[in-house]
Every structure is written in structure tokens, then in C-alpha cells.
């Protein structure tokens, strides 16, 4: 699992971090940067969303498949494009697109790409997207959550 520490910048000067949780879709690791929304259509190679100067982490709200948003690239290619444009990591809000989690995991596993991709949903996603909607600048730090082992019980 991924530990997501979010520090709103404008809230208080020190800005106590909010701790959220996500799941790594591929390799695990650490990253830190400003939270920046990417519209799903901006991660298409025809689109020219410019490379950001700041150190940032992209967050992409995936719409429900029923809404039939034009899928210009696969989710893996979208993640690659975000990183190519400077993102240190890519967070996908998969609340409305559960299938995206499976697609991303399989694609990342097969590709062997070293891309830091984190999936969030429900309450955790709601907090992140709430910050985006209110245009509240925040820094995000992604860490590996160290978990207890799940050894099988056997006699």
C-alpha cells in the first residue's frame, strides 16, 4: 500500500499533513511534489499540455466508463506521458472506474516500467479531489506503507 501525506499550503503556514492511503499499481517507492490535476484528455499525445517547471505529482480523476470519455491512450501510456512531462508520480482516482486498477496493474507488470503510479478511491480520493476542486495548493508525499506479513495459517 501507499501512504499519501498531503500538506495543504494555504491552510496554515505549517499545514499539518493529512494522511491518506492508496495502492501502488506497479513498483513501490517514494515521491514528493505539488499536487497538480491533469484532465484525462490532456494526457493524449495530440494534446500539448506543457511541461511544468515545478516539481509536481499529477492526479487524474477517471470518469466512469459509461460516460464514454474519448480514450486517446491507454492508462499506462497516459501515466508515461505525465511522467514524461515532469510528474514525479501519477495518482489515479479510480472511484468511478474500478476496472482501471486491474488494467494499470497488468500493464505496468508487463511493461516493467519504473513508473510510480498510485490508485486512490472513495474517502481518500474525495479528500484529494476536494483540494483540487477548491484549487488549494498542497504538497503530496508518497511513501511505501510497511505492512504486517500475511503468512498462511497451517497446522
Amino acid at each position: 500500500k501507499a501512504l499519501i501525506k498531503v500538506t495543504p499550503l494555504r491552510q496554515e503556514p505549517t499545514g499539518k499533513p493529512i494522511t491518506l492511503e492508496g495502492v501502488f499499481a506497479g513498483v513501490r517507492g517514494q515521491a514528493e511534489g505539488r499536487l497538480m490535476q491533469s484532465h484525462p484528455l490532456s494526457l493524449c499525445n495530440t494534446s500539448e499540455d506543457e511541461r511544468q517547471d515545478s516539481v509536481f505529482i499529477s492526479i487524474v480523476k477517471l470518469e466512469s466508463p459509461e460516460r464514454q470519455v474519448p480514450q486517446c491512450l491507454s492508462l499506462l501510456e497516459k501515466a508515461r506521458l505525465a511522467v514524461k512531462r515532469g510528474a514525479k508520480a501519477v495518482i489515479f482516482d479510480v472511484t468511478d472506474d474500478a476496472g482501471a486498477a486491474v488494467e494499470l496493474r497488468e500493464a505496468l507488470l508487463a511493461s516493467g516500467d519504473y513508473l510510480l503510479v498510485v490508485l486512490v478511491q472513495a474517502k481518500d480520493a474525495e479528500v484529494l479531489m476536494g483540494l483540487v476542486n477548491r484549487n488549494e495548493e498542497a504538497t503530496v508525499r508518497i511513501e511505501v506503507m510497511v505492512e504486517p506479513p500475511r503468512w498462511p495459517h497451517y497446522d
Binding site: 505539488r34 499536487l35 497538480m36 490535476q37 491533469s38 484532465h39 484525462p40 484528455l41 490532456s42 494534446s47 499540455d49 480523476k61 470518469e63 460516460r67 470519455v69 474519448p70 482516482d93 479531489m129 483540494l131 483540487v132 476542486n133 484549487n135 488549494e136 495548493e137 498542497a138
Partner: peptide, 23 residues
């Protein structure tokens, strides 16, 4: 709610407008 417009009416252009952290 979060991404703004996903698809415009025919003939219109979609602009992905960046406003600070929002797009």
C-alpha cells in the same frame, strides 16, 4: 464535477484550461 467538460457540442473546441492546480 471534477474535470469540467469532457465532451463539447459538435463544432465547438474543447480547451483544457489550467488554473493553478486545476485543469
Amino acid at each position: 464535477e471534477y474535470n469540467g467538460c469532457l465532451k463539447c457540442m459538435p463544432k465547438l473546441f474543447i480547451l483544457l484550461e489550467r488554473n493553478d492546480i486545476r485543469q
